[in-house]
Computed example of a mutant assay.
Amino acid sequence: MKEMSKNSTAGAASRHRNGGGNPLGPNSEIARKLKQYYDELVSDQVPDRFAQLLSQLEKAEPAEKKD
Score class of each variant (00 low, 15 high):
L54I: 02
K35C: 06
A12M: 07
K59I: 03
K66E: 15
K65A: 13
G20W: 01
A51W: 09
L24M: 10
L53A: 10
K33N: 10
K6S: 14
R17W: 06
K59Q: 14
S5R: 01
D67G: 15
F50L: 08
G11L: 02
L34I: 13
N7D: 08
N18W: 00
A12D: 11
G25Y: 04
L34M: 13
Q56H: 14
K59T: 05
V42E: 13
G20Q: 01
N18C: 02
S55E: 13
K6E: 15
V42R: 12
G20T: 03
G21N: 06
N18K: 02
V46K: 08
E40K: 04
P26S: 13
Y37T: 07
Q36P: 04
Y38K: 03
S43K: 11
P23F: 10
P47K: 01
K33H: 10
G20L: 00
K59G: 10
M4P: 01
N22K: 01
K2S: 14
S28E: 07
I30Y: 10
D67S: 15
S55V: 03
N27I: 10
K65M: 12
Q45R: 09
P62Y: 15
E3T: 10
P62E: 12
P23K: 04
H16R: 01
D48C: 06
R15W: 04
L34V: 09
E29L: 07
P47V: 04
K6H: 12
G19I: 00
N27H: 08
L54N: 08
L54W: 15
M4Q: 12
E58P: 00
K59W: 13
Y38S: 10
R15C: 06
A12P: 00
R15K: 03
A63N: 07
L41A: 08
S43R: 11
S14G: 12
Q36V: 01
A31K: 00
K65R: 15
Q52F: 04
Y38C: 04
G11N: 05
S14K: 02
R15E: 09
R17I: 13
K6A: 10
L41E: 15
K65F: 14
A51C: 01
D44R: 11
K6M: 07
R49M: 06
K35S: 14
A51E: 07
